[in-house]
Design a protein around this nucleic acid. Structure first.
Lengths: 184, 184, 184, 184
DNA sequence: AATGAATGAGTATTCATTCAT
DNA sequence: CATGAATGAATACTCATTCAT
């Protein structure tokens, strides 16, 4: 038997495949960055190349799906009563450590209009809590939403280049620095 | 002779070739990022592919050479009398905007031991001026050299993802944010 | 049910599906040539890929069905009283302009035995009117049926390579040339 | 030895490779038409895929090279004293039988500007001899250059669809028909 | 019997690296 | 020691065909 095709698991596998692809993409993006070969994602997901393309017409669409989960989760979290900017930022910071995908989302590079939309959702979410945070003195009074996003992007950007092992520590230090600034 | 290759300029051209390769690499890295095809660098340098490999065994070695110049230049600048941390940082910021290569130097990603050494030279250079800067109130009193480097890395990292056109503005905003911090 | 597939319209839809496939194939072949993806045909027909294969075991079988209609239509037309070779040829010429499928039929390429049969039906049809046409001086006295078919094939062949926009004009010019010949 | 690379025959092989590629392309185009996989051409030429791309940046460039030879040969032939339209057309007809590449050249489909130029060279060549041919009664007095080209295209087009074995005979019959026309 | 998801072979193209000259 | 052609592994993407439901 020279070639042994993967068993065709039939249409019923569609939903499972989609999820497997997203998971695999999340992992592979995390390990190897956003430029990782799509073929590797398909293989990791245990799915044919064609199925990947059926579910996600291009790299951007796949990224979207990966990020969508993250953003939705974040929005849900932010909507809970008693959750303020501090908690949201803390959550983001945690996600940045574990999910390279999330890093990419806050990173300018991936200039996909759809991705940009997701980024804006995060921006909106943060802006929504900025007022209250300013009043409570959690951040300085003149901090703008754009500044906040830029700060997160900077953090995300270094982390995207940081080897997994060091990520937690770099995130910690970077975050602290970002909060306190350099000036005397 | 059906083809007309470039004249073999002989061994004497070795040094000139090396310089040409470095210049070309600096340009190409600046224009197209660190992942640009090596063949393009050789072509821009007006040098055969083989010569590139003779001089620089891999992409990292070439990057090294490019950065070496930057760092040496920076060290020379920093050694001038009357040049303090402010000026050095300002110079770095400018270089970050114009030279993608410099961005890469301050960026963790290229995890090449040799590159790390260069990064440390920048670190050393900054540390050397930190004391005075703290005393003069240019930075806060408890700022460490490592923190400073991390800040620059963060800036470099976003910039490495920022399209050329927006780089100057992002550098400006990012730097300001970095100096003032988020906290209230 | 995470996905919503088209309702399974059941066995009763078989005949309707078959027709829809033929129509869609005619359109797609006309628009995009004989090499168009089968999936596009199925989609245009509003039918599953599998059904396409159930009805037509391969591209050739589908083509057959498309051409069958054309040929039958042509036979019917030719059988009408008062319709002579002139009218039939004129009709063919018109069809060649609008229907890439018809072009393919008169074109040798698709060397499918079944298609050949259809071609022969066209040949028979023309031969049936050749005698009368020769007597009436519509064509030269020694023109054979095979020659006539070859001429049509030549016309079809260029047209199959002619971009849609120019097809009418090329058909016009080609037909004229074919009728008058080159010789002095 | 899991992989055995082809020996690198060095730059000296460049010219030979180029020729081998052209020959292979001529063969493959003849056998399988203009859409044949480029990889097959490289394999047939005994040359790496990359070398094909080095020599010919795209399919059109390769086709150009194949056709260039044909056209130049024809121009040389036509320039000989005593060679008139009859002989040139006869030569073209012969080439159409043996070289699918030549067929494609006279065929509209390959809408490459460079290829079009080559086609125009053939057109120019024919036009140059048309006057004399008309005077000598070789063709009818009102035949235009464009008509002549269209006729050749029609012949080429059928031939491009005709299986190798039948090509000579179809060329013969088609040519005769083209000369004499259909009309009574 | 209909559906459309799954599959992977096939093709174009790029680029790091080697090596004959 | 320089040159640049040669090489093929790697990757994105398409599409004919199969098959679970």
């Amino acid at each position: 038997m020279p070639q042994e095709r993967r068993a065709n698991r039939g249409p019923g596998a569609a939903a499972a495949n989609r999820e497997a692809l997203i998971s695999a993409a999340r992992e592979i993006f995390a390990e190897s960055g956003f430029d990782a070969p799509l073929s590797r994602i398909a293989r990791r997901a245990g799915v044919g190349q064609g199925s990947l393309y059926r579910h996600f017409s291009d790299r951007g669409a796949l990224a979207m799906a990966v990020f969508e989960d993250n953003v939705t989760g974040l929005e849900d979290y932010a909507a809970r009563p008693g959750v303020g900017l501090e908690q949201v930022l803390e959550t983001i910071r945690e996600q940045l450590v574990t999910s390279m995908a999330f890093v990419e989302l806050l990173d300018p590079p991936v200039s996909d209009p759809c991705l940009a939309q997701l980024g804006e959702r995060v921006g909106a979410l943060l802006s929504g809590q900025l007022d209250s945070a300013r009043r409570r003195g959690v951040v300085r009074a003149d901090l703008t939403g754009a500044e906040l996003m830029l700060g997160l992007s900077m953090l995300a950007a270094v982390l995207s280049r940081t080897p997994t092992g060091a990520r937690a520590e770099v995130a910690e230090r970077g975050w602290l620095l970002l909060r306190r600034g350099l000036d005397g």
